[in-house]
């Protein structure tokens, strides 16, 4: 269990990660701040409290928990969290999306960035990869867990449902998938673009154990992930339907799909940074 002090520490890290995100995206005037900010609390909770992981990074990931980011466009939050967790120097965040950088627009293991095990960006593929890794863990008698994060717009990709069907059929019960339900995608709200209707009923019908959470409440997200872990090993895959606010933490970025993939101006950056406390140091 996380104490109140733990939660406050995690919130401090989250504030710093949010500063990094807006600064990284501003510096190259490209990237995806909205979803990154929305998933910051989840990513911080995962890497700083939930995952059993080794920052010295072994690509094979034996006997440690693994995380796969399917919606690879929210790379800024992942890079910042990995850096603060010790996978690489925080100063490297300044190279995001620049030529010769290991911090590609979308994550890849090809440039050798510690913490990344598979490329993502083309949507809909990450859950399949995570399930494969989870099944290898079973074959290897490795009791650690596999986590995956998917966007909600991404659920429009058919492969996600191929994977969902497979997981329940094969009783892959060492996986915890989280869906970032921010209700937004590039062309508008998910409701307008392609209504996902009753997502909970869909996952239940596919045979998953469904839990729900508020992804922008650190206390709740920590509890939810701890609860999710307690559900593993019972024959069913677990999905966490996590409501978030796109752009969470920066008032003018919240509540709209507009900030999915655009960068703040100099003035907007200053405004955003005024709202986000520097806690463990800017890169």
């Amino acid at each position: 269990m996380a104490s109140q002090a733990n939660i406050q520490e995690l919130e401090k890290v989250a504030s710093q990660v949010r500063r990094d995100i807006v600064r990284m995206v501003h510096a190259v005037q490209s990237g995806h701040p909205g979803g990154s900010l929305g998933c910051t609390d989840f990513m911080v909770a995962l890497y700083f409290h939930v995952l059993k992981h080794d920052k010295s990074f072994n690509p094979d990931g034996k006997n440690e928990d693994l995380f796969f980011l399917s919606n690879g466009h929210i790379s800024p939050v992942w890079y910042s969290v990995l850096a603060h967790a010790g996978y690489f120097e925080v100063s490297e965040l300044a190279t995001f999306r620049k030529i010769n950088s290991r911090l590609q627009g979308h994550p890849t293991p090809e440039e050798g960035l510690p913490g990344i095990r598979v490329a993502s960006g083309s949507l809909g593929q990450g859950l399949s990869v995570a399930l494969g890794a989870a099944q290898t863990k079973k074959l290897n008698k490795d009791n650690s867990l596999v986590f995956a994060l998917l966007g909600d717009g991404e659920l429009q990709e058919g492969q996600v449902w191929e994977a969902a069907m497979y997981a329940a059929h094969h009783n892959v019960d060492n996986i915890i998938a989280t869906i970032d339900l921010n209700g937004q995608q590039i062309d508008g709200s998910t409701k307008q673009v392609m209504d996902l209707k009753d997502i909970k009923a869909k996952w239940q019908a596919f045979g998953w154990d469904v839990i729900e959470s508020d992804g922008n409440n650190m206390d709740e997200i920590v509890k939810c992930l701890e609860h999710a872990k307690s559900l593993t090993g019972k024959g069913k895959p677990i999905v966490n339907l996590m409501k978030t606010e796109m752009g969470a933490g920066v008032d003018f970025m919240m509540g709209s799909h507009k900030w999915h993939g655009i960068a703040p101006s100099d003035e907007q950056l200053a405004d955003a940074l005024d709202q986000l406390e520097e806690t463990i140091g800017d890169y």
């Binding site: 034996k62 598979v118 990450g126 399949s128 074959l139 490795d142």
Partner: peptide, 28 residues
Amino acid sequence: PERFYQTGIAEANMMGLAAGMTIGGKIP
């Protein structure tokens, strides 16, 4: 039988699964 995975008629998922299975040393 424990090293064989039936994926059903879902080739996209099969390729993703195979990619993931390599993590931890399997050769799919």
